[in-house]
Each structure stands twice: as structure tokens, then as C-alpha cells.
């Protein structure tokens, strides 16, 4: 089972991202899918999280994820605010929305790091709400690139199940651009250091 945690701020669409990934993974052929918001009241701008579980078998656990296989960070300022790495497995993958390269983000420890300028890509595609870039969909493209769990085609199919066709066009373009521009730096488990591949 692969456990994915989406970290963002209320209004950034972490819940929708978790759901689209669920749809995409189901299309990919995984039989076990759950996606859930952080349970409780939602507040725009406050740190929020959502989760996706993906498995070959139907899922029988609905408890909160303690240590995720993948963490996706929609707002890099959250890295210093909440303990995102504390809820990530050792050698897990963290994907961050940032114009910085993976080794410039300041993430220490045994993790694979991926970065993509999702905000920049969203602005290019004019994906904004109230002036703020929509970063959840480009990060799904980054997810496909960084993890290889779900194909970019299935991410797009999953997205089309959750939004109308006219809105899907720009979002799919953002997903493709993000996929192509995601930089992945894998942790080298032999030496204990990080090495760009």
C-alpha cells in the first residue's frame, strides 16, 4: 500500500488533488483506493492536509496516516511551520511546489526530493482564483513523474472525472508542463548522501 499526504492551505485544493489521484489510481488498475480530508472544520488559508491510500487490494484501514510514502507540499512555507517530514517514511518521497532545485530547499534526511514550480506553471496557464495560482493540478503531474505510480494519461483521465471538460483543458496542460519540469533527486541509500540522477 502507498500512502500519500497532501499538505496545503485551506482553499488550495488539497482535497480535490487527493480525490483526483484516487480516481487516476483506480483507472490505473489499483483496487484499493481511499481519499479523505483532514477531518474537521475547514478554514481558508490555514494549514490543511488530505490523504490518498492506494493499494492492490481493497483498503480496510481508515485511520490517519502516521508515516506517508509520499508527501506533496502545495505551499513551501508550510515546511517550516508544520512537521511534514515527521509524517514521512524514511526514504519516502517529498514533492514541493517551489522554483528552487531539490537540493536548495533545505530538506535534510533520508528522503527523495522532487521540486516543481507549480505556482509559475499555474500562472502561465492562467489557472488562478482571486489572483492566487491553482497548484493542486500541476502537482499531480509532478506526482506522476516523481513516483511513477500512476501514468500522466491516467492522471488526466482522473481529473476529467472531477471537473468539467472546459476547465480540464488548462489543468491538463499544467499537469503536462509540471510533469516535464519536475526535478527529482533520489536519496542514495548506499552512501547516506543525496545524489542527483
Amino acid at each position: 500500500m502507498q500512502e500519500v499526504l497532501w499538505h496545503g492551505r485551506g482553499g488550495q485544493g488539497v482535497v480535490l488533488a487527493a480525490q483526483i489521484l484516487g480516481e487516476a489510481a483506480y483507472i490505473q488498475g489499483f483496487k484499493g483506493i481511499t481519499s479523505a480530508p483532514t477531518f474537521g472544520p475547514e478554514r481558508r488559508g490555514a494549514p490543511v492536509a488530505a490523504s490518498t491510500r492506494i493499494s492492490d487490494e481493497p483498503i480496510r484501514t481508515f485511520s490517519q496516516i502516521e508515516a506517508a510514502d509520499v508527501a506533496v507540499v502545495l505551499d513551501a512555507t508550510l515546511l517550516t511551520m508544520i512537521d511534514i517530514l515527521g509524517r514521512l517514511k524514511e526514504r519516502g518521497m517529498i514533492i514541493v511546489n517551489t522554483p528552487l532545485a531539490p537540493d536548495q530547499i533545505g530538506i535534510e534526511g533520508c528522503f527523495d526530493v522532487a521540486s516543481v514550480d507549480a505556482s509559475g506553471i499555474a500562472r502561465e496557464q492562467r489557472l488562478t482564483v482571486g489572483g492566487f495560482p491553482i497548484v493542486n493540478t500541476p502537482l499531480l503531474g509532478a506526482f506522476a513523474k516523481a513516483t511513477g505510480l500512476v501514468s500522466i494519461t491516467n492522471i488526466e483521465r482522473g481529473l476529467k472525472k472531477k471537473m468539467p471538460a472546459d476547465r480540464a483543458i488548462a489543468n491538463c496542460a499544467a499537469i503536462r508542463t509540471a510533469f516535464e519540469n519536475t526535478i527529482v533527486k533520489r536519496h542514495d541509500s548506499k552512501t547516506g548522501t543525496s545524489d542527483k540522477k
Binding site: 483506480y26 483506493i33 481511499t34 481519499s35 479523505a36 480530508p37 477531518f39 474537521g40 481493497p58 481508515f62
Partner: peptide
């Protein structure tokens, strides 16, 4: 059925 745990969790 359990609130949030099932009511707000998506699954096939």
C-alpha cells in the same frame, strides 16, 4: 456508519 471515518472518506 462512522462519521468522517466513513461519511467523509472516498472509496470505490
Amino acid at each position: 456508519y462512522d462519521g468522517f471515518v466513513l461519511s467523509h472518506t472516498m472509496m470505490p
